[in-house]
Structure formats: C-alpha cells, structure tokens
Nucleic acid binder design. Structure first.
Lengths: 195, 195
DNA sequence: CTTACTATGATGACCGGTCTATATTATATG
DNA sequence: CATATAATATAGACCGGTCATCATAGTAAG
C-alpha cells in the first residue's frame, strides 16, 4: 500500500518550509493540512521534525535537479538552456503564488549550526545543481575553470532572482535576470568557441 | 543620554535574525545576549518583536546601502566597483563567521504574509540597492533599460553568493561570482561605450 | 498473531506579550 | 542649593498559548 499519508506530509512540509522557513513551520500546521493524526508523523518520520523536513528537502532538490537537467539537455546552446531554465522557474513561482522557489535557501538562512544533517544536504544540493550547469558549459567548449565560475554565477543569480520575485510578487526580476545571464553565457561561449 | 540598551538590542537582533531568521530568533535570546530585562524591550520597542526586528533591518539596510555606494563611487569604472563590492561582502561574511550577509533575505524567506510592514521594507531595500548600481551603470554610458537589468542581476548574484558562501562556509563562491559579474559589467560597458 | 498504520492526548519547555514595581535621570520650582 | 515632580528606563514575575515530543491504545489486513 505504501500509505499516501507519508507522501502527503512530505509535499505539504516542502511547501510550508519554502514559504515560512524551518522555524516558521509548525508540526501542528503540517498535521492539520495533511489531515493526519499526530502519531502518524512520528511513525513515518521517527526523527520528528528534522527527519520530515529532510525528506521534504530531498524531494524538492530532486525536483529542481531534473528540471534544470531537462532545460539544459533539451537545447544544444547553453545560453538557450539557461534562459529556458529561468522561464521554468518563473512559471513555478507564479503558480505557487511566489511561495515555492528554492527548496534549500530558506533552510540555509534558518540554520546557524552548520554541522547538522540539514546543512549538509543544502551543501550537496548546491553542488548537484552546479554540476549540471558546469557539464553543459564544458560541453559547449568553455574552459573548465571558467565554466565552474559561470555555473556558480548562473546558480547564484537564480537564487537571488527568487528572493526578489518573492519580495515583489512578480516574475519580472526572474525574466530580467534570466535574459542577462543568458546573454552572459552566450558571450562567454562565443569567446571560447570562435577561436 | 539615550540609553545604549536600545542600540545594543538592535545590533544583537540584527545578527540573530540574519543567522536564524525571524521565527528562529527568540526574544529570550535577544534579552539574554543584550543582558537586559524584559521590560526594557517593550519600553524601547512598544510594538514588540515586529518593531524590534524592523529597526534592526533598517539599520542593516542602511549599512549595506552605504557600503555599496562607497564601493561604486570610489571607482570610476563600474566593473571595478562591482568587484570591490563583492570583496567587501566577502570580508564581512568571513568576519562574522558567515552569519551576516543580507539583512533582509532571511526575512523575505520567513514571511509568507506579503502585506506586512516587514515585507514592505524588504521591497524597499532591494529597490534602494538596485538604484545605486543602476545610477553607476547609467553614468558609465550603459543605456537605461540594460542598466536596470544589469543592476538587478548584480544584486541577485550577490544574494545568491551569500547563500552559497554561508552554506560552504567559504568566501570562494563570492570571489568567483564577483569576478564573473565584474567581467559581465565591463563587457556591457565596453559595448555601449565604444560606439 | 503480527505488522503497518491510525488516533488521541499528556507532557514539559518555551514562546511572545503584559503587568506592576522600582530605580535613575532630567527638569522645574522655591 | 534643595527639593518636588515628571519622564525615562530597568527589573522580573506572570499569563495563555503553542511548540516538538512521546506514550499508549485502537484498527485494519494478511
């Protein structure tokens, strides 16, 4: 059977954590929105809140990862891939009323203790996403060192774009920044290719 | 006399909110770290936590604002200004053990109710910082529309760089992204100037 | 009868906020 | 100069509510 209660809790937790951060999300609200009893939570997630949030983050990270991969792979021009990636992000934010953006950033800003398992998975997420960009850039002929910096920049700009979009309740920043970043990528790729 | 208790509370709150977000910061901890009694808090900040955090954010926003202005004004080349700005950011993060970065981002990700006064000041902060970059870029001969997009991008990338630096506990991302952004700015400025 | 899951509610810690009482300082008045 | 008065600030007990956690019991299915 593999109860759907567990899955439901994960999805709801993912949304709440992105919307209000780790500390701002209460188990009571998760329970209420999941329409589940208290005991179920500790049955499915023996470690309590931490474990539940961890699962929710893992799910979100995987989702973002496949989205980025899909954007970059379905276009041989990396600049085009970056642009399409920002467009996907814009739509996702709009559809979620600007609540869903990055599954880890709210936790990064909520967790001062860098030694926790939660912090560890945040680090891994950034690396994972970076590698997708990096691979695409190298494949496009950009030299590795530059490709790495560029990947980080594309990633960072999209994180910042999410913050601004949330704040302004508009996809305008995402579109603007996406356009700039695509331009930058095509500039760098052009430089390195035409030699 | 204008007690220094008030100022002390603001500074400590600013640090705590940046480190753990709005919900993750408790009045008890602020009180304890400020070495002040409970009554003093509600004397100096009648609105309670919200008012206190608001003041702390205002102070932080102003601080960042002057830092960015200083970086951009003390260099006629905007690319150089951007680079220096990222360097200042890197040092600030390192000195604070990667706790201090942006005074508003943790609140943006913590506040689902966009109608609040807290959310309003976040919006204003982004605009304020953007205008500094925008002004410098226009002054360097970049056409207004492009300058606006570029300003947002530089801003967004630095927000993202903060997240990554915090997560990795390293200034490497800030340096890498700063280099890329400076390169991008000089590229755009070069385009528009040499006509 | 066991395994998987649901259901309920007690527990103690901590939350932000309110209250009254006291101390300190500044100003006014004689 | 001395004293009264008011404004400023400190001090901490206390409240109702919510937090995450956990113990225990019920239910359903194979």
């Amino acid at each position: 059977m593999s109860s759907n209660t567990r899955q439901k809790m994960i999805e709801i937790t993912a949304r709440l954590v992105q919307a209000k951060g780790y500390h701002g999300t209460s188990l009571n609200e998760i329970l209420q929105k999941s329409d589940a009893p208290r005991g179920s939570l500790y049955f499915h997630f023996p470690g309590g809140k931490k474990t539940l949030v961890l699962e929710a983050m893992k799910a979100g990270i995987e989702e973002v990862s496949t989205a980025v991969k899909s954007s970059m792979e379905n276009s041989d021009d990396p600049a085009e891939g970056v642009m399409s990636n920002y467009q996907v992000l814009a739509q996702a934010m709009k559809e979620s009323n600007y609540q869903m953006g990055c599954p880890v950033s709210s936790v990064v800003l909520d967790m001062p203790d860098i030694e926790s398992e939660l912090a560890e998975i945040c680090r891994e997420a950034y690396n994972l996403w970076n590698e997708v960009y990096y691979g695409a850039f190298v494949k496009a002929g950009i030299e590795p060192e530059r490709a790495l910096r560029l990947a980080k920049t594309v990633q960072a700009a999209s994180e910042g774009a999410i913050l601004m979009a949330r704040s302004e309740q508009s996809i305008q920043p995402i579109e603007d920044i996406g356009k700039e970043m695509a331009d930058m990528v095509s500039h760098v790729a052009g430089q390195k290719t035409q030699q």
